[in-house]
């Protein structure tokens, strides 16, 4: 009998903890495709679970004695709790009680805890956080999203790191998005080989010899939504800024549509007529809520959704995690990194 992926959900993260995570866990338990392990404060979880539809055959609650932080916007209190609970979730993965972790906790805390605690696939290769960005249609793939990594906010990356992240991103795109030979680009200030910082020009030369991926050279930030590459590689600080700008622009567009919807009946009627187009906008604008951002390069699979992510986003994060487990992403990442030469000691 084939085994189902077991996904650990951390109920401490996110603005509506633990109710959103609990609802997602209960809903997904009814599908039978995945085994859910929900980690949270025992009395609260158990009391709320009884009010939801769920299937105990597919849902396990792992109770802790740690109470939820108050929803007062006190980030310090929240971070203190997360620094205690995330290691508990990770320990379940280490003990083989789960295959992947999905959390809506603050990205910076998750990054800190995960990179401290989890072992890397290869000790000399740093992990990277990836995010999806919607693009125009690409010739290489039906997937409407491109993968950008690293978006962790870390300020620097050398050529070796960029090269290894290209390998990780390529493997992810191949396994998860189903792109046979992913087009990988480096993010730079121009398309020429010599443009950009030294790390980028060095990585450019190294990636030209890579056979698993199709290196398409440098692209600019404006080219990401145009769909010029399946995977875009940059340092964490740049990636974080690029993602923030794109999310801001999308939010602005959606708010404009909402303003039109609220303001005048005639505009609302117009939007009704354009409903299929607006529907596409809705689909694309919710990209950051679809699934989660995977952290690649570690021996554990960890996915981070936004703290204010909708229930659908968190659900999709779990589905994405299950897909990665099913398609043996970790093994694919290990294999991809074999192409990256070891750092001379």
């Amino acid at each position: 009998m084939p085994t189902r992926p077991t996904i650990v959900i951390d109920s401490y993260g996110g603005v509506d903890s633990p109710l959103r995570a609990l609802r997602v866990a209960a809903d997904l338990s009814l599908t039978r495709r995945v085994q859910i392990v929900l980690v949270g404060h025992a009395p609260v979880l158990h009391a709320h679970l009884a009010t939801l539809s769920y299937d105990p055959a597919n849902l396990r609650l792992v109770g802790t004695s740690i109470d939820y932080p108050p929803h007062t916007g006190d980030h310090l209190a929240e971070h203190r709790v997360l620094h205690r609970t995330l290691p508990l979730c990770l320990s379940l993965l280490e003990q083989g009680e789960g295959d992947a972790l999905v959390t809506a906790a603050s990205e910076s805390v998750v990054w800190q805890v995960v990179t401290e605690r989890c072992q890397r696939i290869r000790a000399d290769i740093a992990p990277a956080m990836a995010a999806v960005i919607p693009t125009l249609a690409r010739s290489s793939s039906d997937d409407p999203f491109a993968l950008v990594l690293d978006v962790s906010g870390n300020s620097s990356a050398n050529a070796r790191q960029l090269r290894s992240w290209a390998a990780l991103g390529g493997a992810y795109s191949r396994v998860v998005s189903g792109v046979r030979r992913p087009e990988v680009a480096l993010l730079s200030t121009g398309r020429d080989q010599d443009q950009g910082p030294q790390s980028v020009t060095q990585a450019y030369r190294a990636l030209q010899t890579h056979t698993d991926i199709q290196f398409v050279g440098n692209i600019q930030a404006v080219d990401i939504p145009r769909g010029l590459a399946d995977v875009v590689v940059c340092d964490g600080f740049t990636g974080n800024a690029v993602r923030g700008v794109l999310e801001g622009v999308t939010q602005l567009t959606v708010e404009a549509a909402r303003y039109a919807w609220r303001s005048k009946f005639a505009w609302r009627a117009g939007l009704r007529l354009l409903s299929s187009g607006v529907g596409m906008l809705k689909q694309v604008s919710e990209f950051q809520r679809y699934g989660g951002a995977p952290i690649l390069g570690l021996q554990q699979l960890v996915f981070v959704t936004q703290p204010d992510a909708s229930q659908l986003a968190l659900e999709n994060g779990v589905r994405l995690a299950a897909k990665c487990v099913d398609r043996e992403l970790l093994q694919a990442l290990e294999l991809a990194l074999e192409q990256v030469p070891k750092e001379p000691s």
Binding site: M1, T3, R4, T6, P56, A57, N58, R60
Partner: peptide
């Protein structure tokens, strides 16, 4: 086609309740 985890989950839930 319930698996071992499914049986255990049902058992644990029965104990919990």
């Amino acid at each position: 086609r319930i698996d071992a985890l499914g049986l255990l989950g049902s058992l644990e839930d029965a104990m919990r309740r």
